[in-house]
């Protein structure tokens, strides 16, 4: 592994890019999925089109999506924004159904009690429904995080630098060291994302531990 020793700086730089390209869409995607999921829950007719429709987005091959972005949004072909938008679309695809189902899993008697106390709709969402939906949303977010870390590497083919570059590099030179380093780095990154989400969830839901593990 002398290759790794010689290229630590480069690998770290690519990792930082990877975190940016996979992580930022996770946050933006969540912010978009929250209102969409709420609407899907609030208006029953929207549930099927929203969840199925956004779910279908996930089936678009990532390479196709990366290439299409400049045509749709008029961005430059090598602009990393193309990747950010595409990854955000994948995140939304995974999270709309999760958010809708998480809000649906909030016990009805709790929601009714909140109404009866005199909570108006918006405040009720932020004070009661959203906090109680956190555990389920977090589970969906963990899946999306791992998926993003994996998919974003494909962007190497369109020349946007991140850890995926190690794979194309190794492939072109039939040299395995960068490929192995890339796989290990991606795996570690996925684990770190997972851990961060897990810790944030614990901070947001002290009541879950108090219940002795009961949800």
């Amino acid at each position: 592994m002398t290759w790794f020793a010689d290229h630590v700086g480069e690998v770290l730089g690519l990792t930082a890019q990877h975190v940016y390209l996979a992580g930022l869409p996770l946050l933006i995607g969540l912010l978009i999925a929250l209102p969409l999921g709420w609407l899907a829950r609030r208006y029953r007719v929207l549930y099927a089109p929203f969840t199925v429709g956004t779910g279908l987005l996930y089936t678009i091959p990532s390479l196709a999506l990366f290439i299409l972005m400049p045509f749709i949004f008029g961005t430059r072909i090598l602009d990393p924004v193309n990747v950010l938008i595409a990854m955000t679309i994948y995140t939304v695809a995974l999270l709309v159904r999760t958010v809708a189902d998480a809000l649906g899993a909030v016990p009805d008697h709790v929601v009714q009690a909140a109404r009866a106390m005199g909570y108006r709709r918006v405040k009720r969402f932020f004070a009661v429904e959203l906090p109680l939906a956190v555990p389920v949303i977090s589970a969906g977010l963990r899946v999306a995080a791992v998926s993003n870390v994996s998919i974003v590497s494909v962007a190497a083919i369109i020349g946007v630098p991140q850890l995926g570059l190690l794979f194309t590099d190794g492939f072109q030179r039939t040299f395995y060291d960068p490929i192995i380093v890339g796989i290990v780095a991606c795996t570690v990154l996925a684990l770190v994302f997972d851990l961060v989400i897990l810790l944030a969830t614990r901070l947001l839901t002290p009541w879950q531990r108090a219940a002795g593990g009961r949800a």
């Binding site: 709790v110 009690a113 009866a116």
Partner: peptide
């Protein structure tokens, strides 16, 4: 107004309907 009316009326239900996160 709905919200004001409700804040002036105490409401107790079966299983208490407590907020589990509070």
């Amino acid at each position: 107004k709905e919200a004001e009316l409700r804040r002036g009326i105490g409401y107790v239900i079966q299983h208490a309907g407590l907020f589990p996160h509070r």
